[in-house]
Amino acid sequence: MAEPILRTQSLGISFGGLKAAQDVNITIEKNQIYGLIGPNGAGKTTIFNLLTGVYKPTTGTFFLDGEEICGLSQEKINHKGIARTFQNIRLFNNMSVIRNVMVGLHGQSEYKCSIWDSFFRLPRHFKSEREMRERAKELLRIFDLEEERNGLACNLPYGKQRKLEIARALATGPKLLLLDEPAAGMNPHETEDLQKTIRFIRDEFDMTILLIEHDMKFVADLCDKITVLNFGTVLAEGDTKETLRHPEVVRAYIGG
């Protein structure tokens, strides 16, 4: 069997005495849309922060495409192929839409030109700038943002800001895309639209997606597999529909 895209091995982190995540094992195969769910404070975003290098785990490690990348710095992990969006949108608000995406392209070697190329305005500088602009436009077209590309990111309506964040993350050329509550604050119509977009990203970019979401219908419709977290530990995992019916899961959500 092929190497899974992501494999975490007893991943855990404590803040002082608080075990925010403990012994978390998740395996995500290529092209899966994988859900990470759980009640508030279950440690979902903590897992995202561990996977993107914001936190260093106190126990365990994780592998991307078979390569151990745990402990690398945030930008290195991004270069290796994990990109994310944020629960509360963190766009570069005072930059134009297209430049937000171009920042995402920053770390990709094919667009690199040295500071000297830029300083002396060598042809390489213009070539790489032009290519980045074209690539950014393509990405914006996919997300239906091409029209707004020269406006400031902060002036976009909420749903479009979420889309732009995904476009920016995709621009970094990831193997695994982490979406932190992509449907938060969206109306049912926008949510449906988002589902389509996520499936499209998987097919078009040959992408693997791990997402956190509270909207159970959204998760049930979209995810191939899920992991349920509660108090930082894995409560249940497996096929989405079965896992959602798991008595432990029902109890954790409804209480009692």
């Binding site: 930008e75 570069f92 930059m95 770390g107 500088h125």
Partner: peptide, 29 residues
């Protein structure tokens, strides 16, 4: 011009806007 129209200049603005997000987008802060 450097800040506006170069890859590194753009990264500088991104870092000044949100250091954390910039780093997660692969910029070496």
């Amino acid at each position: 011009l450097f800040v506006k129209y170069t890859r590194i200049g753009r990264a500088m603005i991104a870092v000044s806007e949100d250091k954390g997000a910039a780093q997660l987008m692969g910029i070496n802060v």
